[in-house]
């Protein structure tokens, strides 16, 4: 009797998990396409040419900030790390990552903010500020063309799983999950827009729609407000979990940051 009750409980538990999340098959690795590959040739050309890619203005500002020491006498980024090309090579491809000192999992902007407050004695630049996006773009450029490394390979599988649950969660008044558009219906027309697969290979990136450079969190926020849901607060752990899952889903794809998107 006890065993049957346990079986029933197990079956019901499995059912409740299934009922929460949208179950559609993921994209086979060979079928994955980045937003760069599926966007129009004119925007591709804009990204390919560093002189016409508007995100490269952010890179230039970020490189200048890299070697500018704060006025409080603490070191510049370059004071500890040295040359950005050598020090930051491949770093963005391995983010989000666990901070060895605090044990916290940080995305790249979170890592830069921690450095600013702990090592430079500054109040960290806010997310979405030009200064933080510029530093992020300058660092991300040093991973261009490199394969995105799966977060599970650096012990972050828990966050990946939480992120997948969010990816399969229906949100908002329109009651849609990420997976329903970006796994089940990519390539199809949503009004005048082709639905992309939603791989975070190019962040931070310049969106023509925004007319500015922006972060992955900003893009995810757009999706949540699009389905008429209340976005998570800036810097909330849900964004990080979603990013971990999306980076796992895009593992092995080439980074093309800082990108341009329509």
């Amino acid at each position: 009797m006890g065993r049957i009750v346990a079986l029933l409980i197990a079956v019901l538990a499995a059912a409740s998990v299934r009922a929460e999340g949208v179950q559609v098959p993921g994209i086979a690795p060979a079928d994955r396409r980045s937003g760069f590959e599926t966007m129009g040739p004119d925007v591709q050309a804009m990204q390919r040419d560093d002189f016409s890619n508007p995100a490269m203005l952010g890179v230039a500002a970020g490189e200048a900030a890299w070697s500018r020491a704060p006025e409080n006498g603490k070191p510049a980024c370059s004071g500890c790390h040295g040359d950005i090309d050598a020090a930051m090579r491949g770093v963005d491809a391995r983010y989000p990552a666990r901070d060895a000192k605090s044990g916290a999992v940080l995305d790249l902007p979170g890592r830069i903010q921690t450095c600013q407050s702990v090592n430079q004695g500054l109040s960290p630049q806010p997310r979405e500020s030009d200064g933080l996006l510029a530093l992020q773009a300058a660092i991300a450029l040093r991973s261009r063309g490199m394969p995105i490394e799966p977060p599970s390979a650096r012990g972050l599988s828990d966050g990946v799983q939480r992120g997948e649950a969010l990816y399969r969660q229906r949100f908002g008044q329109l009651n849609l999950a990420c997976a329903q558009c970006h796994d089940a219906n990519w390539g199809r027309a949503l009004g005048g827009t082709r639905i992309p697969q939603g791989h975070p290979t190019g962040y931070p990136l310049f969106r023509l729609e925004w007319q500015s450079i922006g972060s992955l969190q900003r893009r995810l926020r757009n999706c949540l407000t699009g389905v008429r849901a209340e976005p998570f607060p800036s810097g909330a752990s849900e964004w990080l979990d979603l990013e971990l899952f999306l980076r796992e889903r895009a593992a092995g794809m080439a980074s093309d940051a800082p990108g341009v998107r329509p």
Partner: peptide
């Protein structure tokens, strides 16, 4: 149950329903 079609006349709303849409069907 797997449809992508939004529920147009359901006032209880969805998960993390946007504040501006609380209590209102589409």
């Amino acid at each position: 149950p797997d449809t992508i079609m939004p529920p147009y006349f359901k006032s209880e709303g969805g998960y993390r329903l946007g504040r501006a849409f609380a209590g209102k069907p589409i």
